[in-house]
């Protein structure tokens, strides 16, 4: 029973972080229909950057984390400005491939600057584990879930009430109409990339606080694709619902299937879910089914 509760709590917490990273993907997809496959590498490089600031440079936490956010904003801006903008109105294949190229480049950059493959961030949260009933959960998980939820709430409010947020939703709906109304579509794209990179950075820091910084972070980014697929590509609510489901499936499956099937099953469950969703309900739980015309 304690085991089950433990899996459930950690699963939901990790799933929240996946959902946060997935949110960054959905943001870009909604506003500019670019599929950002460099998500994993964005997570990786911002975690390493945080490590560089906090441990190698030795800055105080709040400055270091603030710098990470600034770095993420800059990263998002430069990716959009230098790789995506020249490719506006190109076939979707080019757009997907260019993000693969960006991801490859970032991965090289990481091993260029930080050749050690493993590192740990300093503890930002108190170390004492929390007792929830019979389960013992370390505080990082709870903080991760809390921060993800808070960010999700803030982003929802932003999209609902802020002028830029409304412009972004409008762009997602109809680019041409929005342009005719005088909304600068390119800066909306730029903005959505910045937001995506910031949430990826926050998600990366939260995940690496739990599991350390490794190349597995790229896989974490890829796992959040399963969240996007399950929730539906263009749905924020979908992300928030599907994230904990994926996290739960991963942790429960990892906990109970490992003795039966073998180690490592935990890492593969999100990908199996992707295949199943693809075959049964390709547009996800909340996704909008697109009907094409010739």
């Amino acid at each position: 029973m304690a085991e089950l509760l433990q899996y459930v709590v950690t699963g939901i917490a990790v799933g929240m972080v996946y959902a946060l990273i997935a949110l960054g993907f959905a943001l870009i997809w909604k506003s500019s229909s670019v599929a950002n496959l460099a998500l994993g590498q964005l997570v990786l490089i911002s975690s390493w950057f945080t490590y560089g600031m906090l441990v190698q440079v030795g800055l105080p936490y709040w400055i270091g984390l603030l710098l990470t956010i600034v770095f993420a904003v800059f990263l998002g801006w430069s990716i959009e400005r230098f790789t995506l903008r020249p490719l506006i109105a190109q076939p979707i294949l080019s757009l997907i491939t260019v993000t693969l190229g960006v991801g490859y480049f970032l991965e090289g950059l990481v091993s260029f600057i930080w050749p050690t493959s493993v590192a740990a961030l300093p503890h930002l949260f108190p170390k004492e584990p929390v007792h929830i009933g019979p389960a013992v959960v370390s505080q990082e998980y709870l903080w991760a879930a809390g921060i993800s939820l808070a960010l999700f709430g803030m982003l929802s409010l932003f999209f609902k009430y802020h002028k830029m947020g409304i412009a972004m939703r409008a762009t997602a709906d109809d680019q041409l109409a929005v342009q005719a109304c005088g909304v600068p579509v390119t800066s909306v794209f730029s903005m959505s990339w910045m937001f995506a990179c910031v949430v990826a950075a926050v998600g990366g820091v939260l995940i690496s606080l739990i599991g350390g910084i490794t190349y597995g972070l790229v896989e974490t980014g890829l796992k959040s694709f399963s969240v996007v697929i399950l929730g539906g590509l263009d749905s924020f609510i979908g992300c928030m619902v599907a994230g904990p489901i994926i996290g739960l499936a991963e942790n429960l499956g990892g906990g109970y299937l490992t003795p039966i099937i073998g180690p490592g099953i935990k890492d593969i469950i999100p990908f199996i879910i992707i295949i199943i969703v693809m075959v049964i309900k390709p547009f996800g739980l909340f996704g909008e089914e697109r009907i094409e015309r010739i």
Binding site: L87, V98, Y104, F105, G108, S111, F112, I113, P115
Partner: peptide
């Protein structure tokens, strides 16, 4: 930096892919 040999490959190939696409 000491990661030069490891990192230069992906950096160059990533750049080449991006530049060719653009």
């Amino acid at each position: 930096p000491s990661g030069f040999t490891v990192g230069i490959g992906p950096i160059v190939f990533g750049l080449v892919i991006i530049l060719f696409l653009i």
